[in-house]
Structure formats: structure tokens, C-alpha cells
Amino acid sequence: MTAPAHHAHHRHDHHDHVEAGNERRVLWALLLTGGFMLAEVAGGLLAGSLALLADAGHMLTDTAALGLSWYAFRVTRRPATPERSYGHGRIQVLAALINSGALIVIAIWITVEAGQRLLAPVPVLGGPMLAVAALGLVVNIAAFSILHRHEETDLNLRGAALHVVGDLLGSIGAILAALVILWTGWTPIDPILSVLVALLILRGAWSNLARAWHVLMEGTPEDIDVDALQAELADSVQGVLDVHHVHAWSILPGRTLMTLHASIAEEADHDTVLHELQHALAERFGVTHATIQIERNHCTDRPHGSPPAHASAATCHRTEA
């Protein structure tokens, strides 16, 4: 097994191990969130608290969102097929997109409901509200501690974690509102804190939605600088005159795919240059799946129609690898 192939195999095994761990974390968070949701609905109705009912509604959608995230991890483990040669990993990005969109809708609903409560205040029982919110905080901290690992690099896990963070913030807001109501009797604090929580949820959800959309639109991965990559490959790989027509995208964050053209000197050995390019992409940029087109000297379809200064104008011979 060649070095790039060995590293690719190692990364694949490590990725599968991480995916299995993420799947288990989402399942535990799903059980915790779904189990507590029913208690919070009862507590919100008993106390007459919008903060609790809003958080319970949020937890209801979170239970569905966590279920979707867990299902996405399960589907991703299915092997690739002739119809889906890259496998089923993209469903995780779709799950992240749906979950982030749902969070935005929830944040808008909470804001509208809070405005109605400010215009027409209702009685709120601070004692039951405080008890349920405190219990919810414990449950949400436990769920977040399960999910917080790897969420920065996994859109699906990050979408699930954002739902739990929203619940955690909702519980904190409900606790603060309950304390203010118990100490002062001022009930408008309940919808006011609900709006603040909704804005925090909206900020995180919008960021994750943008990242998921970027992947679905096959945008260049955030950790890939195409100009720097072209320059480094041309400078570091002996025999390479120019690198162009670089296209990079990802099935999932961390699973980068790439195609590129490399113009090489007439005397350069095709196989050696190809191996060195593959090695450089894997070691320096983490790209283990690249389609490289080798061209002798200047190729007529190079961007802008101008050859590199050190390349001779010759017939373009192409070899794909």
C-alpha cells in the first residue's frame, strides 16, 4: 500500500469511528430530550409560563431534530452503490439544513408570541416554573456534554448540538424569569427573556444554515485556499510547471474532493509527478480523493489563454489519473 493510500485508509477508519461515536451521542441526547419534554409541557401549562411552553415546544422540535440527525448518521453508514457512488453522507448536510431552518422558525415564533404576551400579560406561577426550569437545565447540560465533541467539524452534530444549546439557554432564561417573578412579581420578564433566548438561537442557527448551504452548493471547503494550493504544488513538486483548473468541493465537511490540471515539463516522468502530487495533496492539504489531469507543457484550454512564462508552446498531451 502506497503512503497516500495508507493515510487515506487510516483517515477513513478514523472517520468511521468518529461517526459511530457521534451516532451514539445523538441517540443519548435524543432520549434525554424526549423524556424531559413531557414534564416541561405539564409544568408550562401548570405555571402559565410562556418561557416554559416555548422551551417545551422547542424541545418537541429538538426531539424530532435529534431523531433526524440520528437517522442521518445511520443512513451514512450504508455502502456506496452504482446509483450513489459517493455513498449517502450528504444526508447529514440535509439534516443540518433542515434542523437549522427549524430553529429559525422556532425563534421567530417565540418572538411573535412574546410580543403578544407583552401586550396582554397573563399570570405566571414562579414556583412551579422555577422547579421545572431547574430540572430542564440539568437535563440540557447533560445532553450538551454528550454532544459537544466534534460539533465544530460535523455539520449534522453541530445542528443537533445547537438545538440542545437553545434548550439550555431557554432553561436559563426561564430560571431567571422565575426568580424575578418570585422576588418582584413583574411578569413581563418572562416574554422579554424569551426574546433574548430566541435571538441567541437565531444567531447560531443562521451560521449553521449558511455552512450547510455552502456544502450543498459545492462551495470550496473553508480550509482550502486554491491560490495557495496552486502555488505550493507548482513550487514543491519537481517537474510541475503550472497547476490550474482547480475545483474543490466536499460531500461533508472534512471529506474534500478535488480535480485539477497540472502542466509538467517534457522531460518529467508522468508517474513520478502524479505520485508526488497525490502525496502533497494528502499530506499538506488533507485531500485524499483527487482526480489529476497531467498535461505536457502548455494546454490550449488553460484559463485566460496565456501559458506560464517558463512553458514552451507545444502540443497538449493529456493523461488522466
Rank of each mutant, 00 (worst) to 15 (best):
L155A: 06
L176E: 04
N156T: 10
L168H: 02
E151Y: 14
F144Y: 15
V139E: 06
L130A: 12
V195A: 02
L135Y: 09
A142G: 09
L162M: 14
A161M: 13
D190P: 14
A160C: 12
G170I: 00
A143M: 04
V197A: 01
H150I: 10
L179T: 05
L130D: 08
V164T: 04
W183G: 11
L199G: 11
V197Y: 01
A142D: 10
N140L: 13
A198K: 07
V180R: 08
I192W: 09
L135S: 10
V165D: 03
A161W: 13
H148Q: 11
I192R: 06
R203M: 13
G185A: 05
L135K: 07
V197R: 01
S145A: 14
G204Q: 03
A198Y: 04
A131D: 11
D154R: 03
S145E: 06
L200K: 10
V180K: 06
L137Q: 11
I141Y: 12
I201P: 03
V164A: 07
I172W: 07
I192N: 00
I141S: 11
I141C: 12
A134S: 15
L193C: 09
W206Y: 12
A142M: 07
L157Y: 00
I141H: 10
G166N: 00
S207C: 08
L196C: 14
A131R: 05
L179N: 03
D167W: 11
A160H: 09
A174C: 05
A131M: 15
